[in-house]
Design a binder for these strands. Structure first.
Lengths: 176, 176
DNA sequence: TATTGTTATACTCTATAACTATA
DNA sequence: TATAGTTATAGAGTATAACAATA
């Protein structure tokens, strides 16, 4: 039985192909989140002139309950330091955050959300929640919600723990 | 009992706040997919010099089993027509797709994946699958996989059926 | 030396509006 | 009139590398 395309046997490459059910879950996940992200971004842009990344940064500061350093703030939201500097520059110029020194480590910068920033988050949150409910939760039973939260928390933690950029088995770079 | 922040009662806005469990699921979902997307993009860029959008377009053509019109191709992948024209231009210049006329409707353009394009997808797929497995499926039991696929398919279909851009309850545009 | 953050720069991508051509 | 696609253009965002300052 020589099943060369999609079975449980390793490929010629030695890579196990994903089972159809896995592929289906992966694609559904990616497309659904893409749609969700698009919807959410529209709302934030229309009602508050913020990108999702900017909203995330403000939200993070909000529920941290106090100032964060740039590095702490970036974690999980932005994937390059200069990208964060850029976004922080925009938020500061808009008066939504302020940057100050951190006495305990003079290299670091402490980022604080301003009253204006906090007010903006409060103003945007209901509409945001509304969109998320309409797009996401209206399609979910209580049971699904429980599963989804459980699964994605686990996945998120798993990914956070992954070796960031080294440890790539081989670098096949063979582009073009 | 005047619970003004996060209970089961409508807000001053008349908007039901999300329960903590819902918020948790939403944030976990968004962050996990952001990490997944980032990982996958790194692999595609490194091994095939493709963005995720470009890969999606080629993949779509692949499993359509034949040519698609621009509009069909865009569906769910790209949110503006000009964006697709741009990406199709890049893919064509790289020799991965070709564009031809569609006799049955002279307004339309038929997009066909070339042999080179098909070969590229075949070359990238194992590494792609590998990344998705490492980041996503390694954190999931069989049971989780089943749930996830089921849930996200339902969510995706729900979102696809949403009124695209009109029907926004009110336009509060009050930016800045 | 390693880490924090910024700057300069180049590039990719997206969206809007105006336009052409066909239905 | 409506639809399919392109073009021009402008803006937002990202990443890399070089840099300065502190640990």
């Amino acid at each position: 039985m020589t099943d060369t395309h999609a079975g449980a046997d390793p490929d010629a490459d030695g890579v196990e192909p994903l089972a159809p059910r896995q592929l289906g879950a992966y694609f559904a996940l990616m497309e659904a989140v893409s749609l969700l992200q698009h919807g959410v971004e529209q709302q934030l842009r229309a009602e508050g002139d913020l990108s999702y990344v900017q909203f995330q940064l403000l939200a993070r500061l909000t529920d941290a309950g106090g100032p964060l350093t740039m590095t702490q703030l970036a974690d999980g939201v932005v994937y390059s330091r200069s990208g964060l500097t850029y976004q922080a520059g925009l938020l500061e110029k808009a008066g939504l955050i302020s940057r100050g020194t951190f006495p305990e480590d003079e290299r670091a910068i402490l980022v604080t959300i301003t009253d204006k920033g906090a007010a903006l988050v409060r103003r945007l949150l209901p509409g945001h929640v509304e969109v998320v409910r309409r797009l996401l939760f209206d399609a979910l039973a209580d049971d699904d919600l429980h599963h989804l939260g459980d699964i994605m928390s686990r996945v998120r933690d798993h990914m956070r723990a992954q070796p960031p950029r080294s440890a790539a088995p081989r670098k096949r770079r063979q582009a073009r």
